[in-house]
């Protein structure tokens, strides 16, 4: 009886042990890749495809984590390994405000707190978050953009809440995903890889905007 139970245990443990070994191999690879980045780069990102999250890290610490709500891909993205962000592309990229000397420079900052008018006596919003400042802030970042990496990987970032662009937007998106991408994959440059695209959708606009803010050009990262 005991021998039968032991045998059953061994049979069951077989695939599990294999999975453990594969996990261990994966852990070794990811740790090795992360260590090589973390010791030299102040900041780097980790895109965990199976874990469905994008993280900004420094020295092994997670600074920001953005859970991926929806993920879809076309072709066979060459993902695993170290990558470098080459270019961020947005339909409407944020622009810096340029101030000319002696001009409107002081408008950037409101009056000091002690000298500020009491709330309700002016037309200015009472909540400081509502002031329209001459500044480049998180709210000015695009909600949909693409990231191009040095290995040819193209990732489209978008927010679930900002996805609706009306009927025209849906047609454009459908054409892009179901017609344009397959055809580009078939007839694209013959590099032997074909065209591939990864689309990551995040929960809200702020997630997508903060990814645009924090993932600067040239940032290195690991895709697991």
């Amino acid at each position: 009886m005991l021998a039968a139970l032991l045998m059953a245990g061994l049979v069951c443990a077989g695939p599990a042990a294999g999975a453990d070994k594969a996990d261990l191999a994966k852990k070794q690879n990811s740790l090795s890749a992360e260590y090589s980045l973390a010791k030299d780069s102040p900041f780097y990102f980790v895109l965990d495809i199976l874990g469905r999250k994008l993280e900004l890290r420094v020295r092994g610490m997670v600074l920001r984590s953005w859970p991926v709500k929806v993920m879809r891909f076309w072709g066979r993205p060459e993902l695993s390994g170290n990558v470098e962000l080459v270019r961020k592309t947005a339909l409407k990229a944020p622009e810096r405000i340029v101030i000319k000397p002696g001009g409107d420079a002081k408008k950037v900052e409101a009056a000091p707190a002690a000298a500020a008018k009491p709330t309700g006596t002016s037309a200015a919003p009472s909540n400081p978050a509502e002031f329209d400042l001459e500044a480049l802030e998180l709210k000015d970042m695009p909600k949909e953009f693409s990231l191009d990496f040095d290995n040819g990987l193209h990732i489209l970032i978008k927010a679930k809440t900002g996805a609706s662009g009306g009927l025209l937007g849906s047609i454009r998106e459908g054409w892009g995903w179901y017609v344009d991408l397959p055809l580009r994959n078939l007839f694209g440059p013959r590099t032997g890889k074909g065209h591939s695209e990864l689309e990551l959708t995040f929960e809200n606009d702020k997630d997508a905007q903060s990814i645009y803010w924090h993932l600067f050009d040239g940032i290195k990262g690991i895709i697991l």
Partner: peptide, 30 residues
């Protein structure tokens, strides 16, 4: 053509993402 492109793309996509990743480890290397 679109159908062919779509089928080729689906075939490529079906092999991704690779589960496990990395090479297999033998008992000796464990």
């Amino acid at each position: 053509v679109l159908g062919a492109a779509y089928l080729i793309g689906l075939k490529q996509a079906s092999a991704w993402p690779p589960i496990g990743g990395g090479r297999a480890i033998g008992n000796k290397d464990l």
